[in-house]
Amino acid sequence: MKASELQNAKNPDLIASLVAIKRAASLARQTAIQTNTAIVVIKDGVLCTISAEELKQQEQA
Protein backbone atom coordinates (compact mmCIF):
# COMPACT_ATOMS: atom_id res chain seq x y z
CA MET A 1 0.00 0.00 0.00
CA LYS A 2 1.36 3.41 -0.95
CA ALA A 3 1.46 6.43 1.36
CA SER A 4 -1.23 8.18 -0.68
CA GLU A 5 -3.50 5.14 -0.33
CA LEU A 6 -2.93 5.06 3.44
CA GLN A 7 -4.25 8.60 3.80
CA ASN A 8 -7.53 7.53 2.23
CA ALA A 9 -7.93 4.39 4.37
CA LYS A 10 -11.05 4.01 6.49
CA ASN A 11 -9.26 2.40 9.43
CA PRO A 12 -7.59 5.06 11.65
CA ASP A 13 -4.95 2.55 12.79
CA LEU A 14 -3.93 1.99 9.20
CA ILE A 15 -3.61 5.73 8.65
CA ALA A 16 -1.38 6.07 11.73
CA SER A 17 0.79 3.09 10.75
CA LEU A 18 2.97 5.11 8.36
CA VAL A 19 3.88 7.56 11.13
CA ALA A 20 4.66 4.66 13.47
CA ILE A 21 6.88 2.98 10.87
CA LYS A 22 8.83 6.20 10.28
CA ARG A 23 9.25 6.69 14.03
CA ALA A 24 10.52 3.11 14.43
CA ALA A 25 12.99 3.56 11.57
CA SER A 26 14.33 6.75 13.15
CA LEU A 27 14.78 5.02 16.50
CA ALA A 28 16.55 2.09 14.80
CA ARG A 29 18.99 4.51 13.16
CA GLN A 30 19.65 6.28 16.48
CA THR A 31 20.27 2.96 18.22
CA ALA A 32 22.64 1.82 15.46
CA ILE A 33 24.65 5.04 15.81
CA GLN A 34 24.79 4.74 19.60
CA THR A 35 25.91 1.11 19.49
CA ASN A 36 28.15 1.56 16.43
CA THR A 37 26.36 -1.17 14.48
CA ALA A 38 25.00 -1.31 10.97
CA ILE A 39 21.39 -1.59 9.89
CA VAL A 40 20.09 -3.69 7.02
CA VAL A 41 17.42 -2.30 4.72
CA ILE A 42 15.86 -3.18 1.40
CA LYS A 43 16.31 -0.33 -1.07
CA ASP A 44 14.86 -0.66 -4.56
CA GLY A 45 14.54 -4.40 -4.00
CA VAL A 46 18.20 -4.82 -3.01
CA LEU A 47 19.40 -5.78 0.46
CA CYS A 48 21.76 -3.02 1.71
CA THR A 49 23.86 -2.66 4.85
CA ILE A 50 24.32 0.88 6.14
CA SER A 51 27.15 1.36 8.62
CA ALA A 52 26.90 3.53 11.71
CA GLU A 53 29.37 5.94 10.11
CA GLU A 54 27.15 6.32 7.04
CA LEU A 55 24.14 6.89 9.31
CA LYS A 56 26.05 9.63 11.14
CA GLN A 57 26.87 11.32 7.81
CA GLN A 58 23.25 11.11 6.68
CA GLU A 59 22.10 12.61 9.97
CA GLN A 60 24.45 15.59 9.55
CA ALA A 61 23.33 16.28 5.97
Rank of each mutant, 00 (worst) to 15 (best):
A52G: 06
A20Y: 09
K10A: 12
Q34D: 15
Q30H: 13
T37S: 13
I50A: 01
E5C: 03
E54M: 10
L14A: 09
L18E: 07
Q58W: 03
Q30W: 09
Q7L: 14
P12L: 11
Q30M: 13
D44Y: 12
I42A: 06
I39H: 05
A9N: 09
I50G: 00
A20H: 08
K10E: 08
V41G: 01
I21S: 07
N36V: 07
K22Y: 04
Q58N: 05
A9K: 07
A52S: 15
T49I: 03
E53R: 07
K2Q: 11
E54F: 06
K2R: 13
R23K: 11
T49V: 05
I15H: 05
G45L: 12
I42Y: 08
L27T: 04
G45Y: 10
L18P: 00
I42L: 07
L47C: 06
I21W: 07
R23L: 06
N36Q: 14
N11L: 01
E5K: 12
G45K: 08
A52W: 06
Q58S: 03
I42K: 09
I15K: 15
R23E: 06
S26D: 12
N8E: 14
A32G: 02
K22C: 09
I39K: 05
L18W: 09
Q34V: 10
C48G: 01
L27Q: 11
S4V: 13
I50P: 00
